[in-house]
Design a protein around this nucleic acid. Structure first.
Length: 224
DNA sequence: CCAGACGTTGTT
DNA sequence: GTCTGG
DNA sequence: CCAGACGTTGTT
DNA sequence: GTCTGG
């Protein structure tokens, strides 16, 4: 699954990498947790791309509002076409969530050991995501929210965890983001596990476990 | 037809 | 909104 | 995802 | 055990 990740570069770098219109804000984060605001790329009908913030945890537009009983921080790619919460967003509300790496935990005899997973190339990680917009009938308040799509873990991640986020290669960004594209068969093919050869996986400090910790040292390999 | 649900992971 | 269950 | 909190009534 | 908060 993907329940914690990082965003370690500047907005300007992401704007350039994703060929998207930036925003006049910046916030590095070494320990992003569910319910945080997260950065994503969306495209308009004319294919113009924008960076924008979303609440992490999908709130369907038809729901009565944020509901803590549900934690829709991840969407299994196997259920996108079927589940009511994901069907329409998969057709019309796809986005790319901006990350540089993510954490997964392995249960050990003496507790939970976090691992950091990043691209060997040090490029940004393009996580496949869905978004929705919920509006309050009372106040008119609008919440843009998002969910990260998960898929089977690849060979290098499987020893740590059974699932991983779907990661998009740069040449598929346009196809994935195009809001007019409703070819769910072909879109689904992009959600296969990314190749093991692209990744570094290593154990990091258990300070990651507590979301209050948020500093560059969290990314340090503790193997020695 | 209406009522009610609408989620994932890991662990058991 | 849309699907499932009754 | 993990960490941390978690409850009411009646009597003093 | 289960829910909330971060």
């Amino acid at each position: 699954m993907c329940g914690r990740f990082t965003r370690t570069k500047t907005i300007q770098e992401y704007a350039e990498y994703f060929e998207a219109e930036g925003i006049d804000e910046n916030e590095l984060d070494y320990n992003i947790t569910p319910s945080d605001s997260i950065l994503a790329v969306v495209a308009e009908n004319d294919q113009t791309r924008h960076l924008t913030w979303f609440h992490w945890g999908l709130i369907p537009f038809w729901s009565n509002g944020p509901d803590k009983r549900f934690s829709m921080i991840n969407a299994r790619h196997e259920s996108l076409k079927q589940k009511p919460a994901y069907r329409t967003p998969f057709k019309r509300h796809r986005c790319i969530i901006v990350a540089d790496g993510f954490y997964e935990w392995k249960q050990t005899e003496d507790g939970k050991q976090p691992y950091y997973i990043k691209l060997t190339s040090d490029e940004p990680m393009a996580l496949a995501g869905l978004w929705d917009n919920w509006e309050s009938k009372e106040t008119g308040e609008s919440i843009y929210s998002t969910s990260i799509i998960t898929t089977d873990a690849n060979k290098i991640i499987k020893p740590v965890h059974e699932r991983m986020p779907a990661i998009l290669p740069a040449e598929t960004f346009s196809f994935w983001l195009d809001p007019m594209n409703e070819d769910t068969e072909k879109l689904e093919e992009l959600l296969k596990p990314a190749s093991s050869e692209l990744f570094d996986v290593y154990p990091v400090s258990r300070r990651v476990n507590n979301p209050i910790n948020n500093d560059l040292q969290l990314l340090k390999d503790v193997t020695g």
